[in-house]
C-alpha cells in the first residue's frame, strides 16, 4: 500500500513538473499569438474589427496573457486541476478540449492498431528466429525487418506513398477520409477510413516489427539457457507446448513493458507520419498549434500526451510484480 501511494505521489510530481515545462516553453517565444491571430483575422474579414475586441476581452478575462507569468501559471494549474484545458487562440472560440477530443480518436485508432499489429507479428517472428534457427525464410525476412526498424516511420511512409499511391494508384496519398464521405458510423464511412489508414499504418508496422522482433529475440536467447527449458525438454513435452507455455510466456514480460511504454510515447513519435499523410490526428494538431504558438492548444495536446505516458508508466510499475512474481521477491535491496 505504501508502494502504491509512493508511486502515485511520484506520478503526480512527474505530471506537474512536465506540465510546468509545457507551460513555460511555448511562452518563451517573443511572438504574441493573440496579436498574430488578430492580424490574420483582420486580413480575413477585410478590415472590419468585429469580434476582435470580444476575443481580446475574453482572453483577458479568462487567461490574462497580459498578466505576470506567475499569475498565468497559477490560474492555468488551477484550471488543469479541474480538467479545464481552456480556449484555443487559433480556433477561437472553440474549446481546446473539443479539438483534442476530435483528433485523439484518429491517432489512437491508427497508432494503437499499428502498434498492436507490429507487436504481435514482431514478437512471434522474434521468438521463432531463436526457436527455428534452420528455417530459411525466417533467416532472410527477420534481418530485413530489423534493418527496416532503423529507418524512421515517416521516411518509410514517403516511399510507400510514392510506390503504392502515386505510381500504382492503389491507395490514397493523404488525409484520414475521402473528401465527399459523410462521417457517420455506416460501413461506407468505416471502410473509407480504413482504406485511408492502410498506408500510414503500414509505414509504422513495417518499421516497428523489427523493434519487437529484436527485443523478443534477445529475451528468447536468455530464456533458452534456463534450467526449466531443459527440464521441459527432458519431460518430453511437445515442441508447441514448450514454445508457447515455457519459452514465450517467460520471455514476453519485458515485451509487455515496452508495449505499454510504446502506447504512451508513440503519439508523440508519430507526428511526422501524421504530417506525411496529412492525417487528422493529434500530431497534426500539435504541429499546427506549435506553428501558430497557440499556447492553450499546445498545452492541451501535450498535457494529454504527458498524462498517457505518466499513467501508463505507473500502471506498469504497479502491475509488474503481478505479471512477474520474480520481481516481487527482489525489488530494490540496496539503497
Amino acid at each position: 500500500m505504501v508502494r502504491v501511494l509512493h508511486r502515485l505521489v511520484l506520478m503526480v510530481l512527474v505530471i506537474w513538473l512536465a506540465a510546468s515545462i509545457n507551460f513555460l516553453l511555448p511562452r518563451m517565444t517573443d511572438r504574441d499569438p493573440i496579436e498574430e491571430r488578430l492580424a490574420q483575422a483582420l486580413g480575413d474579414s477585410g478590415g472590419s474589427a468585429i469580434g476582435i475586441e470580444e476575443m481580446v476581452a475574453e482572453y483577458q478575462s479568462k487567461f490574462g496573457t497580459d498578466q505576470p507569468l506567475w499569475k498565468q501559471y497559477i490560474s492555468m494549474m488551477g484550471d488543469i486541476a479541474q480538467f479545464d484545458l481552456g480556449v484555443s487562440i487559433n480556433y477561437f472560440p472553440d474549446r481546446v478540449a473539443t479539438h483534442v477530443m476530435a483528433a485523439l480518436p484518429w491517432s489512437i485508432a491508427l497508432l494503437g492498431t499499428a502498434t498492436l499489429i507490429s507487436f504481435v507479428i514482431g514478437t512471434i517472428l522474434g521468438a521463432l528466429t531463436i526457436w527455428r534457427r534452420k528455417s530459411a525464410w525466417l533467416a532472410r525476412i527477420v534481418p530485413l525487418f530489423m534493418i527496416l526498424a532503423a529507418i524512421p516511420f515517416y521516411l518509410v511512409g514517403l516511399v510507400l506513398v510514392y510506390v503504392f499511391s502515386l505510381s500504382l494508384g492503389w491507395f490514397p496519398p493523404a488525409r484520414g477520409y475521402g473528401v465527399g464521405v459523410n462521417m457517420d458510423w455506416s460501413w461506407t464511412a468505416i471502410g473509407n477510413v480504413i482504406y485511408h489508414a492502410i498506408l500510414p499504418a503500414m509505414s509504422i508496422v513495417l518499421a516497428a516489427i523489427g523493434i519487437w522482433a529484436l527485443s523478443m529475440r534477445g529475451m528468447m536467447v536468455t530464456v533458452q539457457g534456463e534450467d526449466y527449458m531443459n527440464f521441459a525438454r527432458a519431460k518430453g513435452l511437445s515442441n508447441r507446448r514448450m514454445f508457447w507455455r515455457y519459452a514465450v510466456r517467460n520471455a514476453i514480460t519485458p515485451q509487455i513493458t515496452t508495449l505499454v511504454l510504446a502506447f504512451g510515447t508513440i503519439v508523440g513519435g508519430a507526428i511526422l507520419v501524421e504530417r506525411v499523410f496529412v492525417y487528422p490526428g493529434i500530431g497534426t494538431l500539435l504541429y499546427n498549434s506549435v506553428l501558430l504558438v497557440d499556447y492553450f492548444l499546445i498545452f492541451g495536446c501535450v498535457f494529454i500526451l504527458i498524462l498517457t505516458v505518466a499513467v501508463s508508466l505507473m500502471i506498469l510499475d504497479l502491475l509488474y510484480p503481478l505479471l512477474d512474481p520474480r520481481i516481487r521477491a527482489g525489488g530494490e535491496q540496496h539503497g
Binding site: V14, L17, A18, L25, M28, T29, V290, V302, I306
Partner: peptide
Amino acid sequence: LLTDVFLAVPPLLILVVIAAN
C-alpha cells in the same frame, strides 16, 4: 526524477518549441 520528467514530455515538443523560438 529529472530524467523521468524529461522522458514524459514528448521529445519533439521540446525540440519543436526550442527550434520555433
